[in-house]
Design a protein around this nucleic acid. Sequence first.
DNA 1: GTGGTCTAGACCACT
DNA 2: GTGGTCTAGACCACG
Lengths: 119, 119, 119, 119
Amino acid sequence: MAWKFTSDKPLYTQIAESIITAVLSGEYAPGEQIPSVRQLAIEAAVNPNTIQHAFNELENVGIIVSKGTMGRYVTEDVAAIEKSRKVMAEKIIKKFLADISQLEIPMEEIISIIKEEKI
Amino acid sequence: MAWKFTSDKPLYTQIAESIITAVLSGEYAPGEQIPSVRQLAIEAAVNPNTIQHAFNELENVGIIVSKGTMGRYVTEDVAAIEKSRKVMAEKIIKKFLADISQLEIPMEEIISIIKEEKI
Amino acid sequence: MAWKFTSDKPLYTQIAESIITAVLSGEYAPGEQIPSVRQLAIEAAVNPNTIQHAFNELENVGIIVSKGTMGRYVTEDVAAIEKSRKVMAEKIIKKFLADISQLEIPMEEIISIIKEEKI
Amino acid sequence: MAWKFTSDKPLYTQIAESIITAVLSGEYAPGEQIPSVRQLAIEAAVNPNTIQHAFNELENVGIIVSKGTMGRYVTEDVAAIEKSRKVMAEKIIKKFLADISQLEIPMEEIISIIKEEKI
DNA sequence: GTGGTCTAGACCACT
DNA sequence: GTGGTCTAGACCACG
């Protein structure tokens, strides 16, 4: 896990996103235990409260589940993970389209720029 | 100008974006005078300082120029406007790609979703 | 007289400076009558008040003298003109040195840049 | 930091310039944390908003960066600092030449005056 | 009436 | 305690 932070988003959001990425990419498998708050806090060199906040977000989304004193685990519900992926994708794409449409640029041009950038 | 605000972004940002849109779409022509701070404040039902803040951002970008007591005007430098459009588009697209790439979704799928949404 | 205005300084200052330049360059000779407020206002396409304001500044500096209903004239006191030139030069240079010294750039470099720019 | 203000320029400009000077002279090192808005406000005996305004200018120039609730820092990008120095120098020199050229004083004389003043 | 600056004071999110 | 946003209200220079 690479812990690099920017300042355009809250820390806890960035941490949550990192973990989501790890789950979606399979780095954290379904049902696998997630490192503890304290351990992650040390790893990422942030305040434990921040990790806690990130975990709360992830539980709300349903990507991780807390088993009380036994720690937190990636949900075993693979469908839930896939659904999260879709929901997030739609959210991001919707925001993107809302933003970009203000610029009055033809759709084909946008797509061609995307393809270029992606190379 | 429709003045509907959300709470996910600062007011002054949303106002600045509205004006940018108006300029890029040609609603405000190059060299045209822009409504005064106080007038926009009333229209948008916000504090004049907030409008001023928005205008400052636009001046930094170079889209509008202040002529002191004679009011504010859309820049006559059409190239500057076009450049702003490009710069902003790249910024938005870059952010989008950074966000979406975390989800590990194949590029073709992303583009097809974009096309669908856009319809 | 070329009447182009920028917005970084008040109009009346720019007009006063234009007239000073005309005097210092000899375009307006010592003792020569200066165009009337109304005439200059039309020429420069500005409000007569603005010209008036500029004239006041110039009278304070002593570069022009009012002869009541007979109009305004460039002072015949050539020494006064020369003195104005020096005073203004020193003022400008002082401000320049104050500004540039903040940047901690060696003097020789500054002078060499000036010489380059001037070419 | 000596907090003496004149009234020919806005407070926030003077504050911004003070900080720039501190950065360019190395008093504030790259990556170093800058005193908080509130603290500077007390030190300089001005309203926090005024400090904030000054900081905004500096962020636009790229000399300082905000890390959200973790405070503001001098940019670690030394090249950015050097670039700012150059850009500002050119701006000041350009303005100076524009001002001084109106007085129709030979270049050599100007330079000699500068050298004298500087002594 | 126009832009611009400044103050005082409040509220919010984040750590 | 940190930055950030917003309001309300005041004052100034300019035309």
